[in-house]
Design a protein around this nucleic acid. Structure first.
Lengths: 102, 102
DNA sequence: CGTTTTTTTTTCATCTTTTCAAAGCTCGTA
DNA sequence: TACGAGCTTTGAAAAGATGAAAAAAAAACG
C-alpha cells in the first residue's frame, strides 16, 4: 500500500521538532499569519492590530526569530519582520516526509 | 509578490496548534515515522526497535492518540497502531496555509 | 544632552510537559 | 481462576514554557 522513502535522522528530527514547537502556539501562528499577510511589518503594527500586549508580542517574536521562522530588518526606529518561507517550508516538508507515497 | 488567501480563525488556530504540539517532539516524530514505515505495529515492537522505555513509549503514544494522529486496534493481547493520515494531512495543510501563493 | 518612541531583555510567579517508577488493566491460556 | 505478556495509567520530581511587569537598549529628534 504505502512505503515511506524518507528516513529522518536524529539531527533533522530535532531541528524539525524545534521549528514545529515554535509553530505550535495559537498566538505565534496568528502573528506569523499576520506577518505573512503584510509582507514587511513592524512590531507596533503587529500588537496594535492583533490587540496583544507589546511585551508578549516581542517575546513570541523572539521565539519565532530563534526558530528562524522570521527575519528582521531595521529601518530607523522600526524593526520590520518578514517570514522566512524556506524555513517554514522545511517544517512542512518534515511533516510531509511521513506522507510520502511510493 | 505574495498574497495570503487563507485566514485562519481562532478555533482552527487552536486545533492546528494542538496537533502541531503533538508533533513537535523528537521522540513522537520518531515513533510516528516508525509506525508509518510499518503500517500496523504493536507497542512492543515500537519500543524494542527504537530502544525506548515501555512506559515512555506508551505515554507518547497516548499524546499522539489524543491528538488523533494515530489510531489503534486491538488484536488479542496486542494493540496495533496506525497513522491517521487525514489528520496528519490537516496538520500539514494548516502549516501550508501560510505558504499559499496567489 | 535629555526625551520620546520603538523594541528587546530580564525577572519572577505560574502552569505545562517530560521522565521515571510503580501499580493497574486486559486478554489468552494453562 | 490464576498467571504471564502486553499495554496504560498514576503520581511525583525535574525541566521547560507562558504571561505580565518593569528595566534596558537603540534610534530619532528637539
Amino acid at each position: 500500500m504505502r512505503k515511506a522513502r524518507v528516513t529522518i535522522n536524529g539531527e533533522k528530527l530535532h531541528t524539525s521538532s524545534e521549528i514545529l514547537r515554535a509553530l505550535a502556539h495559537p498566538l505565534r501562528m496568528q502573528i506569523l499569519e499576520f506577518i505573512d499577510q503584510n509582507e514587511m511589518i513592524n512590531v507596533n503594527k503587529i500588537y496594535n492590530t492583533l490587540n496583544l500586549e507589546q511585551s508578549i508580542t516581542s517575546q513570541h517574536l523572539r521565539i519565532l526569530r530563534i526558530a528562524g521562522l522570521v527575519v528582521t530588518e531595521r529601518d530607523g526606529k522600526f524593526i520590520h519582520y518578514a517570514i522566512d518561507y524556506s524555513k517554514l517550508n522545511n517544517a512542512v516538508n518534515a511533516v510531509d516526509a511521513f506522507l510520502e507515497e511510493e
